[in-house]
Nucleic acid binder design. Structure first.
Length: 876
RNA sequence: GGGUGUUUAGCUCAGUUGGUUUAGAGCGCUACCUUGACAGGGUAGAGGUCGGGGGUUCGAAUCCCUCAACACCCACCA
């Protein structure tokens, strides 16, 4: 059967994926084997596969496939996240296109639209992961809003509330006026924006004097309830106890004193707006100031905005500046760059706002999670440099604002039954809530009609922080077989950008609800950047279409391309050339198979010398490499592991082994050698399979008739065999001789086809792999001699052995001499550097014996080499 | 402002507690070869005073100090 000379990925990928699925190879159920589980970082349900997903899911697939082959019960749980803000924003935008305003809909109507959207686009990303070859147990696919997952979240909320860890607080929060919801601190991105520092004069009451304050937000002066000076600022001492008039508003407010004021900044005089600035709020509380909130939820001004009511904050800023200028109150307006908080999702400028929110107390919860990473090593961050970042955040952790003013999410299970602040109960169901409310109010007549559930939903992360537990239903049924079997999971692969959002919180919930870490290792990938080092983004348009890449290069090639430059924790500069390299590699392996497959077989022939030598060596080399690969995997050096496989296959297997055993054209290979080669090739395929699942499965099936139970993906990972280091060293010497001869040919333009005679000044038993040297170097005969023959020819040196090749034609004596002299110069220089050390008494007396011994050996070798070169020079 | 980390060949990176030949890999580059697996191939080669300066040591890419550039995280002074 003719096999095409190029590997065509598109012809095999779908076939094998379907086959693996049919055979249920991805599925896992608890059994007597040891478990190995990974939970996927759930992508947004409406998301589309991008390079970051490709990277971390390739990594997860590599880990899970290897574990599976190692005989562990491997389980990779896939799923998606409802991503409350992002999804709700998309749904709102879509409704807007259809001419529907969210505010005109009831909660139920809106949720119906949101579910329609989810059903339509949701899970596309999971289908895309299949194209990449991901071996997830799809039967276990979870969605954070599935009813069981929803229930788990509610149960946890109620539990934490009952433990006194969740509380309701009137706090200043980050308000996104566009999404009209609260954001956690982590969702606020500070961006440096150009603005102005406005110097505004406030008239001192009952005086002609004015006091100048500096602000970047003149529009908030309508909410001012004090002006603050530093108590020891002599410039303002005379103003203590006086009052000033707020321009425009014409209100009288007090001058207060606080050391919070930085005397160096601006005018050293600060206006205080407790409703709209976190620091001002603190000042306001301290000095018991009035709070005037001037904004509506959409950041337009409310009735406190007076004439500006209904206008947007940024419009008002300009107009107020104008009005102040007109009245002479605007003293100065200088350009000033400052950091402005913006919403991660909507990019809107955040408005600090006071409102009722739900909070989770974090300090005590965080303690076991700090210990797990920093002391007990129950959770291991890879690379460990993130430990410091983790510590810093965890030790300064603040209470988590978990409520969001959205509809898409788990609705907070708090039920209000009266108007007083404490007239509410928290319960898993409305029925339980009613009972609790009746009890709390002492009013048995209270009916479900009288209960009003909190309108807010929970932060998305409040459901995903339970992910490793809830996917195994460990919240609702803490003793079920699955959670007991699969939890804790082993490895988590994700980006460092969600170390706090998600990873830290999962560790926290793990200890709170399972008394155990959720995973042992966290592999933190880097960001995928483009070849110029820029972050990939839609705006820049520099993010390649992930699916197009798979189409163009094949999934295996893209996986290899990504892994080649993906050291843990380091950003990777993605270059499409890497996919090309992956594709070339796939093709190389494909052709290695074609070669083996095309050989004629001779039943009777017994292995010739170089076949036996080469095969023995490769078995050895394979084991040595496997052992380093295992070491790389243990340290999560995945790209190093791949590189080791890459070199084993390309250099050792193809360039040395196959070239060595390749029969002459038209000649057959002996059956024994071929059999060994095939076994070795199959072992190679196993090592490559986690990286290139499709190609390897295809070739595995070509290797022979296989029954269904013999798919490569469930075959046994090779075990590290014995490594004979001396034999590997001997092979290396042989390859150096081969290289020497090749070099010799190249320098003199001697064709590879022309057979040469090789003289080596050595005993035959000092060098191994004679047959292999002859074949690979195109040498007809190796002569083991005591001294180079005195005839026309040229020499070269390998280690301390002199090699000589006679040449019938003219030898360029001058060129040979120059070359030898160059070599001599190097050897002498080297000798000198070694001797410098050895002649240093302090070195000899202080350095360990082993080091000195090594230096002496270097010296002896150099001396011998020098003498060999000098002898050669003399004969010229 | 505080913190963490990075800086080694043209590019992307290794270099494990300072010492196995005056630094390694992959890609790229150069020359040549190649009509019997693969031109997406082969063989060989060039290319680095390990960011600058100082120090410790018999010995430093590796440890210490200092400077510089870059990256990320945290906080945020109106």
């Amino acid at each position: 059967m003719a096999i095409p000379s190029k590997f065509n990925a598109s012809l095999v990928e779908e076939k094998w994926y379907a086959y693996w699925m049919e055979q249920k190879y991805f599925a896992s159920t608890p059994d007597e084997r040891e478990s190995y589980s990974i939970v996927i970082p759930p992508p947004n349900v409406t998301g589309v596969l991008h390079m970051g997903h490709m990277l971390n899911n390739s990594l997860q697939d590599i880990l899970i496939r290897r574990a599976r082959m190692k005989g562990l019960n491997a389980c990779w749980v896939p799923g998606t996240d409802h991503a409350s803000i992002a999804t709700e924003a998309k749904v709102v935008a879509r409704l807007k296109e259809q001419g529907i305003d969210k505010n005109d809909l009831s909660r139920e109507e809106f949720l119906k639209h949101a579910w329609e959207w989810t059903d339509e686009f949701g899970g596309v990303i999971l289908q895309q992961l299949k194209k990449l070859g991901c071996s997830c147990d799809w039967d276990r696919t979870k969605f954070t809003l599935d009813s069981d997952m929803y229930e788990s979240v509610i149960k946890v909320f109620v539990d934490l509330f009952n433990k006194g860890l969740i509380y309701r607080g009137y706090r200043m929060v980050n308000w996104d006026p566009e999404a009209q919801t609260t954001l956690s601190d982590e969702e606020v991105i500070f961006v440096e924006k150009p603005g102005f520092l406005y110097h505004i004069a406030y008239a001192v009451e009952a005086s002609d004097e004015k006091v100048i304050i500096a602000t970047t937000r003149p529009e908030t002066l309508l909410g001012d309830t004090a002006v603050c000076i530093h108590p020891e600022d002599e410039r303002y001492t005379h103003l203590k106890g006086k009052r000033v008039i707020v321009p425009i508003a014409n209100r009288s407010i007090p001058i207060i004193e606080d050391e919070y004021v930085d005397r160096e900044f601006g005018t050293g005089c600060l206006k205080v707006t407790p409703a709209h600035d976190i620091n001002d709020k603190a000042l306001g509380e301290k000095h018991q100031l009035e709070v005037i909130d001037i904004f509506n939820a959409d950041a337009t001004l409310n009735s406190f905005g007076l004439a500006y009511e209904g206008k947007d904050r940024f419009v008002v800023r300009k107009e107020i500046a104008k009005e102040l200028d007109a009245s002479g109150a605007l003293v100065k307006q200088e350009p000033y760059n400052h950091n402005v908080g913006t919403s991660e999702r909507t990019k809107a400028v955040i408005e600090p706002r006071l409102s009722d929110q739900w909070f989770l107390k974090m300090e005590d919860l965080a303690k076991p999670a700090i210990d797990a990473v920093l002391n007990s090593d129950e959770v291991n961050l890879v690379p460990s440099k993130f430990n410091n970042t983790y510590r810093h955040w965890m030790e300064n952790i603040r209470d988590w604002n978990i409520s969001r003013q959205l509809w898409w999410g788990q609705q907070i299970p708090a039920y209000y039954f009266g108007d007083a602040k404490e007239d509410f109960v928290v319960a898993e169901t409305p029925e339980e809530a009613l009972a609790l409310a009746q009890k709390k109010s002492g009013n048995d007549a209270l009916s479900s009609e009288d209960l009003r559930q909190d309108a807010d939903v929970l932060d998305t992360w409040f459901s995903s922080w339970l992910w490793p537990i809830s996917v195994f239903d460990g919240i609702r049924h803490p003793e079920n077989d699955e959670i007991n079997y699969y939890y804790p999971t082993q490895d988590l692969v994700t980006g460092p950008d969600i170390l706090f959002f998600w990873v830290a919180r999962m560790i926290i919930s793990g200890y709170e609800y399972r008394k155990e870490q959720p995973f042992s290792n966290v592999y933190l990938t880097g960001l995928v950047r483009d070849e110029k080092g820029r972050k990939m983004s839609k705006q820049l348009g520099n993010s390649p279409d992930a699916l197009k890449l798979i189409e163009d290069y094949g999934a295996d090639a893209v996986r290899v391309g990504l892994m080649l430059s993906a050291a843990a924790g380091n950003d990777l500069l993605f270059d499409e050339n890497l996919c090309q390299q992956g594709k070339n590699f796939a093709n190389k392996i494909w052709n290695a198979y074609r070669l083996i497959d095309g050989w004629e077989v001779e039943d009777k022939a017994s292995p010739n010398a170089q076949n036996a030598e080469a095969l023995d060596w490769y078995e050895n080399k394979f084991n040595a490499t496997l052992s380093t690969i295992e070491d790389h995997f243990e340290k999560y050096r995945i790209s190093d592991a791949l590189m080791a496989v890459y070199k084993l296959l390309w250099d050792d297997f193809c360039s040395w082994l196959l070239e060595a055993v390749k029969p002459a054209y038209g000649s057959p290979i002996d059956v024994a050698s071929l059999k060994r080669i095939k076994v070795l090739f199959e072992n190679n395929l196993k090592l490559m399979h986690p990286f290139m699942p499709f190609l390897t499965e295809e070739l595995w099936q070509h290797m022979g008739e296989r029954s269904k139970e013999e798919a490569l993906m469930i075959s046994a990972w090779p075990k590290v065999g014995k490594v004979d280091q001396a034999s590997l060293d001997a092979f290396e010497l042989a390859t150096k001789i081969v290289s020497g001869v090749r070099n010799f040919r190249k320098e003199r333009n001697i064709s590879h086809k022309e057979a040469l005679q090789l003289y080596v000044v050595a005993n035959a038993d000092q060098v191994s792999y004679h047959a292999l040297i002859k074949k690979m170097a195109g040498v007809e005969e190796i002569h083991w001699v005591e001294k180079a023959p005195e005839e026309s020819g040229a020499s070269f040196r390998v280690d301390t052995f002199e090699c000589f090749i006679p040449l019938a034609g003219n030898v360029d004596a001058a060129a040979e001499k120059a070359k030898l002299e160059e070599e001599l110069k190097y050897a002498k220089g080297f000798l000198q550097s070694v001797r410098k050390k050895l002649e240093n008494e302090r070195f000899v007396s202080n350095a360990p014996d082993k080091v000195i011994e090594m230096e002496r050996k270097k010296e002896a070798d150099a001396l011998e080499k020098i003498s060999v070169i000098e002898k050669s020079l003399a004969t010229l």
